[in-house]
Design a protein around this nucleic acid. Structure first.
Length: 880
RNA sequence: GGGCGCGUAGCUCAGUGGUAGAGCACCUGACCCACAUUCAGGGGGUCGCUGGUUCGAGUCCAGCCGUGCCCACCA
């Protein structure tokens, strides 16, 4: 910021300053922790965005919150680390590069695994850092020297270590189970990667004839094509309708296979016909039943989503084609006993939206219960706290119903599972180092083809990024971390798993506080999505209004856990504030002599004492708010202080002193500068760029505002008596303005006040202060006096202020008749109000039980009402 | 089916048992000295409804209505 001879632009231009400061901060190493062992450490690990990701407002909100915390703690001189990184995002990234290759006419399957992986790494090196560059644009003060990637060598080592240990502890197992299979992504998915969508379907009733030739049993299904894989029909053991059929067999239509009628208490007698077709290979419940009754598992749908050989004539058809074909064949057989339109939940792949196929396959699983219990206890005991705390309930609820976690994925991009299988004897080794020779038979061993769920490595993020399993300096210093800030939507995916793994492997909670933000929506409340085109690119906002404006707008509008609706208005308001702060500092700079030096002495001037008092209050309230993650309240406090107190009142009052004698000038300027310096510091975590720019221009005492010390109140500079005088003047001016409004004067109409104070000293004091605030009194004017100077009875109305009365002569200004009516009405309302308050004070219960200060305030308000009534009566008299 | 929210000014939302707040929008006025991205002022509310607890409820409790989200292996 160039401060020479008034050449400053009257508008703040963020684009000229933001990149400059970010670069300088980074070069000077301000983002690195101080490693001061005498200070508490404060750590945040950034939720790693997908390398494929593009910055959206959700990231912007989350990054802003984290940056506020980190900058605040750094200014508190804590040993502060914010660790950045990215996530390899297995399926996402693989799909992305796959697409890229296809667009080049290439096919990853032809090129092979190794070549493809090389291709993905190349892609990652080229584009993978993009989202972090965007995060940097926001001003995020992350330690770039500690940048991590989930597929880094170190983190991969942590992944292998965790896998092997879990296996050794019996918490990791491999087996054939029904898993959620995406036929399009060609991989298994965990339960939470499946979105259940309510959609219409048809419940078809099909008759299976008894092999005895006498009668039939009717089953109901929404997926007729799976009947090809049926290996039983189940009924409830206590269902009298079907007692006689249990143990008999039916002939499966189309396949002409005899299958038994079994009884199982899983069956719901109320639903459908009370008889269920059992398809162990394609339904999780049927799978369980199959195990209980030792039924064969016939897989009729394959990994590619097409019917298998086992489906006989339907082989090769897609699921959809098979459904239609099966239905029409059944119709032809005459075994359809009715169809019913229903709405049911159908699983969809969260990545590609295709319908999930529950499929029998060989996968790796992590046992849930042993890990979940300590993770629940950590929250129950308060060791880990959620902000807002209602998410504790959601977390507990989710953890209590946790199923084992399917962690193997049939893709290439990710951490390969450290399990090795002997080609000769089939034995398996799970190992930290590659195994090529079978310890049992000497045969050749090959590694498992599958990779791990991306969330498996993310779950280790808080400690793997700090060097675990090695006991590094970083791990000792920064773990457990302080705050984990993320969206509530990934609480089950990520947060809960970090807690489980963190506690299990380090014996400590991974973080003390989980701070959750909501979703960012558009102004209509809709989720932002590409298809709706209702999103907004944060970079566009930054370009237009600056990162500071974006940050303050996000912070002012979003409370923890609540969704945020974005609109251009909000960003614009943010930029107005940046401009306001800039112009306030421009005012200070323009008034500063070249040889000005701050006077450190305590000023006795009431205006100075008052602004210090307000500053002290603001420091306390912002500090309090930040400690409780109430960013919106912190922002509101500094916004109000800067705009209302510092600009609208203090600067206006200082103007006269700045034009006065040198000593007055120096005193006022010193206060302007010192208070501004503190206020800029308070604002810095929220708006880092403009505050640094202005702090430097003011010649702040630290080399950078971000390394400056967080302000503490200076009570010596804020004398209560002095502050009260300013409050009296404010009351006086407001009171005068209110009088004008009450009688319906238009803002343009001139009407001087008469101010009557109780003593001559008060008059002098007021005169001085209002003289200094005369800019506030534009076109209004005040005539001063004591009671002795009261004008002869005339038509005037009065307002009481601290220590005096202010009159507004009415002669010739207003419609007397209208004013009479207005006063009569006001009198009536005030009387009612007075009676109410009086009744309250006469209530023994109230006086006995309400706290003292409430009673006192009520008494005061009764007095206030009484005197208002007096004044109204006077006024009525005057108007007569 | 289970769980969690939300309902406060025209809009978006704060609100910690003690007489309802902000921003934006709207209306009136002011470009003379940091800022028109400004300043001064104004109108606007049965705090979804009904009960309960309490001296006192927007706030706590119950029920209802409206609305949103998450979870879920009844075919």
């Amino acid at each position: 910021m160039d401060t020479r001879d008034g050449e400053l632009s009257s508008r703040y231009n963020p684009s000229q300053t933001e990149d400059k400061w970010y670069q300088r901060w980074r070069e000077r190493g301000y983002f690195r922790p101080s490693m001061n062992a005498n200070r508490p450490s404060f750590t945040i690990v950034m939720p790693p965005p997908n390398v494929t990701g593009v910055l959206h407002l959700g990231h912007a909100l989350n990054s802003t919150w984290q940056d506020i915390l980190v900058r605040y703690h750094r200014m508190r001189q804590d040993n502060t680390l914010w660790l950045p990184g990215t996530d390899h995002a297995g399926i996402h990234t693989q799909m992305k590069v796959d697409e890229l290759l296809r667009s080049q006419g290439r096919d990853r399957r032809e090129e092979g695994r190794d070549a493809f992986i090389t291709e993905v790494w190349r892609w990652k090196e080229q584009y993978g850092g993009r989202i972090l560059e965007q995060v940097a644009k926001l001003g995020a003060s992350v330690d770039w020297d500690r940048l991590r990637f989930t597929l880094d060598e170190g983190l991969s080592r942590a992944v292998t270590e965790v896998f092997v240990r879990l296996y050794e502890e019996g918490l990791m197992y491999r087996g054939h189970y029904i898993t959620n299979w995406c036929v399009s992504c060609r991989t298994a998915l965990s339960d939470i990667e499946v979105d259940h969508v309510e959609q219409p379907g048809t419940l078809t009733h099909i008759a299976y004839p008894l092999t005895s030739g006498e009668g039939e049993i009717v089953v109901a299904t929404t997926r007729p094509e799976t009947m090809l894989g049926d290996t039983a029909v189940a009924v409830h053991p206590d269902d009298p309708r079907y007692q006689h059929l249990v143990g008999q067999t039916v002939s499966l239509p189309l396949m002409n296979r005899p299958i038994p009628i079994i009884q199982d208490s899983y069956v719901d007698r109320e639903y459908g016909t009370g008889a269920v077709k059992v398809t162990p290979a394609h339904d999780p419940n049927d799978f369980q039943m199959g195990k209980r009754h030792d039924l064969p598992e016939i897989k009729v749908i394959g990994e590619n989503g097409r019917m298998t050989e086992a489906s006989g004539p339907f082989e090769g058809l897609t699921r959809e084609e098979a459904r239609a074909a099966v239905l029409s064949e059944l119709k032809a057989l005459g075994v359809i006993r009715g169809q019913q339109e229903i709405v049911h939940a159908v699983g969809h792949c969260e990545k590609c939206d295709s319908i999930i196929e529950p499929l029998l396959s060989l996968q790796w699983f992590v046992k849930a219960r042993p890990l979940a219990e300590p993770a629940m206890e950590a929250v129950r005991s308060g060791d880990i706290q959620f902000v807002p705390d209602r998410f504790e309930k959601i977390y507990m609820n989710w953890m209590a119903n946790l199923h084992d976690w399917c962690v193997s994925r049939q893709i290439w991009w990710g951490h390969r599972i450290p399990a090795y299988y002997c080609q000769s004897c089939g034995s398996m080794e799970v190992s930290r180092v590659p195994v090529t020779v079978c310890p049992a038979c000497g045969g050749l061993m090959v590694q498992d083809e599958d990779v791990l769920d991306t969330w498996f490595s993310s779950a280790l993020w808080p400690f793997s990024t700090l060097g675990w399993p090695d006991q590094t300096e970083d791990l000792k210093t920064f773990y457990p971390t302080s705050v984990l800030s993320t969206g509530y939507d990934i609480l089950p995916f990520w947060v809960s798993r970090m807690i489980m793994q963190g506690i299990h492997f380090t014996g400590q909670r991974p973080f003390a506080t989980v701070l959750l933000h909501g979703l960012v929506r558009d102004s209509e409340g809709r989720k932002m999505s590409k298809s709706l085109g209702n999103g907004v690119d944060p970079l566009e906002v930054i370009e237009k209004y600056g990162a500071d404006a974006l940050r303050v707008a996000l912070v002012l509008g979003a409370a923890p856990g609540n969704d945020y609706r974005w609109s251009w208005d909000r960003f614009e308001a943010g930029s107005h504030f940046a401009n306001k702060v800039y112009n306030a500092m421009r005012f200070v700079l323009m008034n500063r002599d070249p040889d000005f030096r701050v006077d450190e002495a305590v000023s006795e001037h009431p205006a100075d004492q008052w602004i210090w008092q307000r500053l002290n209050e603001t420091i306390v309230s912002i500090t309090e708010s930040l400690e409780h993650f109430e960013f919106g309240q912190a922002a509101r406090a500094i916004y109000d202080f800067f705009w209302d107190d510092y600009c609208d009142w203090y600067i206006e009052m200082a103007k006269v002193r700045l034009k006065g004698q040198l000593s007055d000038r120096r005193q006022a300027l010193s206060t302007l500068v010192k208070v501004a310096e503190s206020a800029l510091k308070l604002l810095h975590p929220i708006m880092p760029f403009v505050t640094e720019e202005l702090y430097q221009a003011l010649g702040g005492s630290s080399e950078s505002i971000m390394m400056a010390e967080w302000p503490t109140p200076e009570p010596d500079r804020a004398d209560r008596e002095g502050a009260l005088q300013v409050e009296a003047i404010q009351a006086l001016i407001r009171s005068g303005r209110n009088l004008r409004a009450e009688v319906g004067l238009s803002p343009g109409q001139k009407a001087p006040f008469i101010a009557i104070a109780d003593t001559k000293e008060t008059v002098e004091r007021w005169q001085k202060l209002t003289g200094e605030a005369k800019a506030l009194m534009r076109g209004e004017g005040i005539q001063w006096g004591t009671v002795a100077d009261l004008p002869k009875p005339n038509r005037a109305i009065a307002g009481v202020t601290l220590g005096g009365v202010i009159y507004l002569p009415l002669e010739g200004l207003i419609d007397i008749e209208r004013e009479r009516q207005r006063v009569a009405k006001a009198l009536e309302d005030t009387e009612k109000e007075r009676d109410r308050v009086r009744a309250r004070l006469q209530d023994k219960n109230f006086v006995a039980r309400a706290p003292e200060n409430v009673v006192r305030r009520t008494e005061e308000s009764l007095q206030e009402l009484e005197s208002r009534l007096e004044r109204l009566k006077d006024r009525q008299e005057v108007l007569r």
